[in-house]
Write a protein that binds this DNA or RNA. Sequence first.
DNA 1: AAATCCGTTTGATCTGCATCAACGAGACGG
DNA 2: CCGTCTCGTTGATGCAGATCAAACGGATTT
Lengths: 244, 244
Amino acid sequence: MREEDKPEIRKLLLFRTMSPENFERLMQAAYAHSFPAQLELIRQGEPADFLHIVMEGTVELFSGWRDRETAMAVVRPVSTFILAACIKDAPYLMSARTVEKSRIIMIPSKDLRATFRLDPEFAVSTITELANCYRSVVRHAKGLKLRTSRERVAAYIYRQSSIAGNAVSFVLPMEKRLLASLLGMTPENFSRAIKSLQSDGVAMDGMRIIITNMKLLEAVAGPDALIDGPDTNAGHFGSGLTGP
Amino acid sequence: MREEDKPEIRKLLLFRTMSPENFERLMQAAYAHSFPAQLELIRQGEPADFLHIVMEGTVELFSGWRDRETAMAVVRPVSTFILAACIKDAPYLMSARTVEKSRIIMIPSKDLRATFRLDPEFAVSTITELANCYRSVVRHAKGLKLRTSRERVAAYIYRQSSIAGNAVSFVLPMEKRLLASLLGMTPENFSRAIKSLQSDGVAMDGMRIIITNMKLLEAVAGPDALIDGPDTNAGHFGSGLTGP
DNA sequence: AAATCCGTTTGATCTGCATCAACGAGACGG
DNA sequence: CCGTCTCGTTGATGCAGATCAAACGGATTT
């Protein structure tokens, strides 16, 4: 792996407080690799041998059952993913594929497990990291069970706007089909949901969302700190974010 | 709290490996209390001041948004719940109420946080505990997104049967309305789902489920280790189980 | 420039599930 | 013993969202 990656990784909450020696040792054990778009990095059910870190690109975490498939999270740089499976030394519950060309760093799970046993600071970081991940999925599940698909779309748009500093306009950060899957609906239904939100202050031009009436949108979205954040960026719950 | 509770708590994965002194100190700081049925122990959004342990009775974790409400998990003795919020020192994402008369032990979050900073064994236990919780919610979310409500009911029945050693008959462990909410559907729909499963090897007599054709049930349920377990008992993801 | 491909949108239709309403059956209290 | 209450079931209806099919448009290829 590149030497210049290290400071980036070191900035992650998970690796920030551990001892320099242990950090260095973990990095020694790590592999780095670039992957083309749409490549399956992880297949659900396989043993969790590596903690992954996205350095560049975008990764989708998804799950399948029978012939169905759903996106569970989208991970962006710099973040870790599938930490829990590595810790448990258990099979991955989710698959992962690159959305675009991505550079990934892989740390062997056994080194990880060894490290938090001998570095208390790292153990504490792992605890908070996992707690963040946990809370993120709980939010996701709450959204699915408590909101209709229209409301989820509205809440997503409202949330993205707040993240961008209450911007009245922003560009969707991923393909609509992927976003639809993440929000638990079909692309067709997503399309219709947006259209139906025109009367509630949302317009769309290609990949750009324009909020024409924030109050109306807010009324439909019903933003709730206990579902939408701000604890952690929504939709990244497999990841190691929780920024600076 | 009672002296005889300690060994029970000590058996929990979370508290099993920590030093006797630290365990004792945590127990000193703990309160115990009995609550009648249907009492709200925790309201979502409030600061997470205590880790809770159910010693007797049953606790429901649930969440609300606007005028809607959904059950997120059901916790039975002896298990902890809402660990993640305590660790993060953040607001509870879920509410909790007793389902029946219950005895609960409460450990101040700040003692908890102090303890895993000075007891590495406890830190490791906390890590595995949180990883279990995380994976449990991921399973829950997968079930919601990938299965229809009929399939979730079938999978639930199949799962309960396996837990009981492939029993062909068992009694539902909770009110049907609560189970329906947990499975993400209305009581009416749950009722109809079971009825429609008669043609797939499931019969019901009051609270008792009788599996008349395991193969047929299995075919509908499509049990999957990556959704239904056996990692951890499904439906208890807020809890500290994983016991013996 | 024409052809192909893929994501998105739109329309038509179907169905799963919620909702609303009513009823039955146990459980409980007067 | 009889009301009352709550839970569960059943029926009727409506709606949200999935599915199927086709058209559109932008990007890439030939």
